[in-house]
Design a protein around this nucleic acid. Structure first.
Length: 483
RNA sequence: GAUCCCAUCGUCUAGCCUGGUCCAGGACACCGGGUUUUCAUCCCGGCAACACGGGUUCAAAUCCCGUUGGGAUCACCA
């Protein structure tokens, strides 16, 4: 076949959803597989739900993920405009063509009337199918209806025959003629419905491979029929199994972040998210799991897309991120960390690369970037602005006869005239261990609790080095005063 | 409700098309143990699945039928 041209055609309603991200990714991969073209089109024909800022958000998210399009919004191309809101004349012309050819007709029911018809059908245990009037309303009827302030829509006149879709993933799927009805292609406000706009644009833009969520599979017959009516060539279809939450329900916001942007804000690496969503419904076979975008471009293939719905396992995503962060080089991590800090309010100064690099090094083993401020943020707070965790104080300092406090006093004196280098502090701490014949925990923990208020922080030498002598001593004093 | 789709460890899945190499492999999670000054990391070990019922066959996770379960669609939303 010709080179593949795919598209991602989101409706701008908010940040990019992980499901949408996967659709975009697969389309991108499909195109790249054969040196084809990947196109980005915005489907904003619904003025009511339109959210202008969402276009920016989706673009930002796609770019963050590293999914670049060759044609479409912002990058341009020969088949624009790439926003459906700017293509009204094209749709109007196409709808007119069907009307003229007797392949579509006007209808005047109000939504309430349609609702009533559906309810009635249901009451009679009948499936509702829009009853095609005979004779069909004419243009004059439409004018009259408009004059009477009645809604005017255009419905497609289906040919009433079975439609078989050849899907690259699901195989042949047939929709019987009896299951179809004359669906709306132009709304009362003159704008086309999704089905019409989508089919017209795909054809005009040369899209020859349609890859999208499975929820569209049972509606694809409309597209097939529409294309036929216009004389457009059929594209290949590949429908993707759905992404569900851990309970097997449709992935929704209530069980956590579902937006790409939320994962970005939470401190995940984009290549990890890409790797993870690629594995939702697809896999390279064998035991390979960790894949870069380049690896995906090499290994992706339609025939390895599965049919069963996938569940979005956040735990596994976290594990992926942990592994990737451990394997990534420092520059990559630095860029990611800076991005994370720019999106979040933390006490960590985001403009000092050497500090950031240092934090990255001493926090090796972190799971997401969010772990770093969680563990080190307190080191950048004011000396009197952090809280002491009651349990930590009790366990490490106050327990028994207060030996923790005694240790702290002892350490404070030594720290006061210790040379402030990692080696010196280490020697000091180890010296105290030997002197008192106790383990590291007995020495390091009292300091940690004193200077951070918690039992958790980077290695004690690293912690004290970041703090510096002055702040360390000030914090120990504050802690001692609270005894 | 109607129509269509799907079905391997708790989860993502490999294997299924081209039956035997699978008393089903990997990863995450979980459990146990170890390393580590704390947390995280890391290391070792373990638990755990072919939805059910019928066929076909010398042989079925793999092929066929049915049942059950889950999902999607039936909008002037996309």
């Amino acid at each position: 076949m010709d080179t593949i041209k795919t598209r991602f055609a989101p409706s701008p309603t908010g940040w990019l959803h992980v499901g949408g991200a996967r659709t975009a990714l697969f389309n991108y991969l499909l195109a790249k597989l054969t040196g084809g073209t990947f196109l980005l089109r915005i489907e904003d024909t619904d003025r009511a739900r339109h959210d202008e800022s969402a276009v920016e958000k989706i673009i930002e998210d796609l770019r963050w993920l590293g999914i670049e399009w060759d044609e479409g919004v912002e990058v341009g191309g020969d088949n624009g405009p790439y926003r459906q809101s700017e293509r009204l004349e094209i749709y109007t012309e196409h709808i007119g063509r069907l009307l003229d050819a007797g392949l579509a007709y006007y209808a005047f029911e109000t939504p309430e009337e349609l609702d009533a018809m559906r309810t009635a059908a249901r009451a009679e245990k009948r499936n509702f199918r829009y009853p095609r009037p005979d004779p069909l309303p004419t243009a004059a009827d439409a004018d009259k209806a408009r004059a009477e302030d009645k809604p005017v829509v255009v419905r497609f006149k289906i040919p009433k025959r079975d439609v078989t879709i050849r899907d690259e993933v699901f195989g042949e799927v047939t929709v019987a003629a009896a299951e179809q009805d004359d669906f709306i292609i132009a709304k009362d406000d003159g704008w086309p419905t999704y089905h019409l706009a989508n089919v017209v644009d795909d054809a005009l833009m040369g899209v020859n491979f349609v890859c999208r969520g499975q929820e569209f599979l049972s509606q694809t017959w409309r597209h097939v029929l529409l294309r036929e009516a216009f004389g457009f060539a059929e594209p290949k279809y590949a429908h993707l199994p759905l992404i569900m939450d851990m309970a097997g329900r449709k992935l929704s916001k209530r069980d956590g972040a579902v937006e790409v942007h939320a994962f970005r804000t939470a401190g995940y690496l984009p290549e990890v998210l890409v790797n993870f969503i690629a594995l939702l419904g697809w896999n390279p076979g064998g035991n390979i799991e960790q894949l870069t975008m380049d690896g995906l471009r090499d290994m992706f293939s339609v025939d390895r897309i599965g049919k069963a719905n996938a569940k979005f396992d956040r735990e596994k995503l976290l594990a992926f991120n942990t592994d990737a962060a451990a394997a990534a080089d420092e520059n990559r991590l630095l860029a990611g960390f800076r991005d994370y800090l720019s999106l979040n309010e933390t006490p960590i100064p985001g403009d000092d690369d050497s500090l950031l690099l240092h934090l990255l090094r001493i926090n090796k083993g972190f799971r997401t970037f969010a772990d770093i401020p969680a563990k080190c943020g307190v080191l950048f707070a004011a000396d009197d602005a952090y809280d002491y965790d009651e349990k930590a104080v009790k366990k490490v300092l106050a327990k028994g006869d207060g030996s923790g406090y005694a240790m702290l006093e002892h350490l404070k004196a030594k720290l006061a005239d210790c040379e402030w280098t990692e080696d010196a502090i280490q020697a000091l701490v180890e010296g105290v261990c030997a002197e008192k014949s106790v383990g590291m925990g007995k020495v390091a923990q009292p300091i940690r609790v004193a200077v951070t208020g918690t039992t958790v922080s980077p290695a004690i030498y690293d912690t004290l080095m970041i703090l510096g002598r002055e702040k360390t001593l000030a914090r120990i004093d504050r802690c001692l005063l609270m005894r």
